[in-house]
Design a protein around this nucleic acid. Structure first.
Lengths: 108, 108
DNA sequence: CAGCATCCAAAAGGATACTG
DNA sequence: CAGTATCCTTTTGGATGCTG
C-alpha cells in the first residue's frame, strides 16, 4: 500500500529532501541524515516502483546517478510538507502536554 | 517524536476515525478495523500523552469510556486528512506505475 | 465493557564489508 | 560513486487469556 511506503521511517523524509530539487545518492544520504545506505537504496527502489521519483544516470566514470521527484511525487509532497510543517510548529505544545501528563501521573 | 506516533501503523487511522466525533473503545476498534485491542490501547495511551486526544469515563457499570480529539488533535487531523485523501485519489495511478515498472523489469 | 499481561512471529532497521 | 550482501538487533504487531 502507498501509505506504508510513505509511512516507513524514511519514505517521507526522502520525498521531502527531493522537493527543492534533484539530488545524487550521497547528497540524499547526507541531506536525510542518519539513514544507512542500505535503507536509502531500499527505499529509493520502492519509491521508484511507485512512480513517485525518477532516476537518471549520466554515463561517466564513476557513474553519476540523480534522483528527482516524479510528477506524482511532487503532488504527494504537498500534503506531506503540510504535515511536517504542522509537526515542526506544534511539537513544543505536544512536549508540554507530555510533561503535564507525566507530572499528573507521578503525583499518584 | 510526534512524527513517529502518527506514523505508526495505527496512530493516524485512530485520529481520523475520531474526526467525525467521539467514540467508545469498542466503536473505535470496529471503526479502525483490523486493529487488536492491545494495539488500540497502546496507541491510545501515547496519543493521550501527546495531548492529541481526550479520554472521559462515565462512572456507570460497566464503565463507559469515550475518546475524542483534543484541540491539538483536531488541528493535526487536517493535514492528515489531506494526506489520506491524496492517497485515496491517487492509489490507482501508483498501482499503474508499479505495473509498468514490473513489466519493464520482466522484459529483461 | 475496557482494558492489561504474556508470549511469540514477522518486519524494519543498523553495522559492516565488499563490488563494478 | 553507487550501490549489494550478510548478519544481527530492535521494533512492531498479533493471539490469547485474564480482570474489575
Amino acid at each position: 500500500m502507498v501509505l506504508e511506503h510513505v509511512r516507513g521511517r524514511w519514505g517521507m523524509l526522502i520525498l521531502l529532501a527531493l522537493q527543492p530539487g534533484p539530488l545524487r545518492f550521497f547528497e540524499l544520504r547526507d541531506t536525510v541524515g542518519g539513514i544507512s545506505e542500505k535503507m536509502l537504496s531500499q527505499n529509493l527502489r520502492v519509491l521508484l516502483r511507485d512512480g513517485l521519483i525518477e532516476r537518471s544516470v549520466e554515463p561517466v566514470t564513476p557513474p553519476r546517478v540523480s534522483y528527482a521527484l516524479a510528477p506524482l511525487g511532487e503532488e504527494l509532497a504537498v500534503p506531506l510538507r503540510a504535515l511536517l510543517d504542522w509537526i515542526a510548529l506544534r511539537t513544543k505544545d505536544v512536549v508540554a502536554a507530555q510533561r503535564r501528563h507525566d507530572e499528573a501521573a507521578s503525583r499518584r
